[in-house]
Nucleic acid binder design. Structure first.
Lengths: 342, 342
DNA sequence: GGAGGCGCTTAAAGCGCTTTAATGGTGCTG
DNA sequence: CAGCACCATTAAAGCGCTTTAAGCGCCTCC
């Protein structure tokens, strides 16, 4: 007895141990622990007691295998991206509300999106949420034939997969509105390079400027996603004899580059020049950067993503869906009234 | 046949389907697919063919349940930390080399370390790697009695759990050496607040200064982990009439605060003042920050962490172990020769 | 020619849980 | 008091894989 006890204590208690301890069947224990209606309150109590006494923890692998449905959503993220980090925080909450659990799989230097997805497929996920997927649309469509897939943050043509993304053009539009409201007219835009996301933001700038009848002041400078390109663009912009009074950039990193050049040049921000970024990244929140920027409401994004999954899984929806979430301008310290007399 | 085919094609093929297709038993298929010695090469080929033809993918949950050992290492990270992101990339590689797989569990706003650990315990992990754990040493020790635990990046007194961390004091020491080598003598340190990690770095500064017989120039200014504290510390330091010619900070964020204050004050960096951070975070690599900083070799850190796990799991080690990895000074653009004549 | 050995293969017993159909015990009705 | 409905409970059949011992044919050796 003692020896047995000693041996047994090394082993994790199983459902059967709890059943024995409570003097009921494993079926009852399973029902009670999952909160399924049926067992009497007397049984409930005994089972709960026994489980607590033994420190029982259900084995996920076994439970997963036995369960009809896994209620698991696979999420592919890039662990290097702070924005993905934000999204992951929010997807956790959203999934929980619907009674789903998550399996995370990350892309790294040595582990591409394909690998990340395969791991999830092997883990009984019922649906996939891909954060900023890089695979071509055709591959995503193929995946979608296996299980519901939603792409977050990136438009995917040739549909099939659901898409949840922010209205980037509108976001830049809001930035323009904000600046125009502050009296700015010469508003330049630092581009983000090729790609579908940069294109959307650029378009937003152009449209908003025209909407304000400022088509004559349109000025797009080449750039990419790094801060160095912002610095370069700023040098170019402010070498002219009629420089802009405001600059909108493709993203926050580029904006930080612009800010740095201005700061080094002794240009007052926002006194002489206003700067707006895009992403509301942790960078922009650094107290001494304090960048006005455009936020993609990650909470809303992920709520929609999870909702899309749940509708297809539990609601039987089959039609493709694209949700476009409005972004939100976050006004911080790098924007102010246009300087007088220019 | 056609109807059956249509129905069947919806179901994922199982081991049995492959066995049937290849005309062998499931046991053989299992052996072949796992690369276990035994099956003849003829059998191997037929099985591999059949598996490929059906697009078979093993079910992880089932495999996990049936396997004696899971060969799974659980990793707890904070998804918000860029340093953890780096560590996760490296732990993937290290684990793979030893034939282990990973399960990631992340801490978020709404999901604390305890929850993250529980998920892993329920997932059949054989060992836990905790990145920068926050739990008290007692809790970690308790956990360690259930399964091998290694804490990364944080010293844990009252041992039991293995520890892998960088020699922070030595890192700051290297920074001091570097600055002294450049002719600096009035080297100030911006502190990181309470806690065991800040304490280690502070100690490193003090010792190194004394080692260079600069004890008389010791100057520690209060601060914390944010950039605002760095900015404040810089204002304090440079209000004095004999300001330092170099500043070392607790971390990169603090250093960025210092840099910002200096830049706004028109102080030339590194001409008039040199600045050194700590962490080699992505922040420090931004081209216009280009901060000299101390890097904790994450690759080495994680290789040691995984090695520690493997030794306990496969090597039968039971003795506690603490590995201290030397950090590395990364010289970038914010440090230079001490200004002449001061 | 039979014992023994060797190389493949496989039947079958789980892994720890879920789920369904069946069991038995109640109290109620006619 | 037989008959019925109803509730709580449980036996048992999996979930898809791994693993072990046993089986089988064939060869070698005394």
């Amino acid at each position: 007895m003692v020896v047995l006890g000693a041996e047994e204590s090394l082993r994790r208690p199983r459902l059967q141990d709890v059943a024995a301890e409570a003097g009921v069947s494993t079926a009852s224990v399973s029902l009670v622990l999952r909160g399924v209606a049926g067992p009497s309150s007397a049984t409930r109590e005994r089972v709960l007691d026994a489980a607590a006494r033994l420190g029982y923890r259900p084995d996920r692998a076994a439970s997963l295998l036995a369960r009809r449905r896994s209620r698991l959503i696979g999420v592919v993220m890039d662990v290097r991206s702070t924005f993905h980090a934000q999204l992951v925080e929010d997807v956790h909450e959203a999934a929980e509300e619907h009674g789903y659990d998550l399996v995370l799989s990350t892309v790294t230097r040595t582990r591409d999106e394909g690998r990340a997805v395969e791991t999830l497929l092997d883990s009984r996920c019922e649906a996939l949420v891909l954060l900023g997927p890089e695979a071509p649309a055709s591959r995503l469509s193929a995946l979608d034939r296996q299980l519901p897939v939603v792409a977050v943050g990136r438009p995917v043509p040739s549909a099939g997969v659901d898409v949840v993304r922010a209205a980037d053009d509108e976001g830049v539009g809001q930035a323009v509105d904000h600046l125009v409201g502050l009296g700015h007219r010469r508003i330049a835009y630092v581009d983000g390079g090729p790609g579908v996301i940069p294109a959307g933001r650029r378009r937003g700038y152009q449209r908003a400027m025209r909407r304000h009848r400022l088509g004559g002041h349109l000025q797009v400078v080449a750039g990419d996603h790094g801060e160095e390109s912002g610095a370069r663009a700023a040098r170019e912009l402010f070498a002219s004899d009629l420089p802009p009074t405001a600059v909108i950039t493709y993203n926050d990193r580029s904006a930080v580059g612009v800010l740095d050049t201005l700061l080094r040049g002794g240009v007052d921000v926002p006194g002489a020049v206003s700067v707006v970024g895009y992403d509301d990244s942790p960078l922009s929140r650094l107290a001494h950067v304090d960048l006005t920027t455009v936020s993609q409401d990650s909470g809303q994004l992920m709520r929609h993503a999870v909702a899309a999954v749940v509708e297809r899984l539990d609601g039987g929806r089959t039609a493709h869906r694209e949700v476009v979430v409005p972004p939100r301008l976050v006004v911080r310290g790098t924007t102010g009234p246009a300087p007088a007399g220019v």
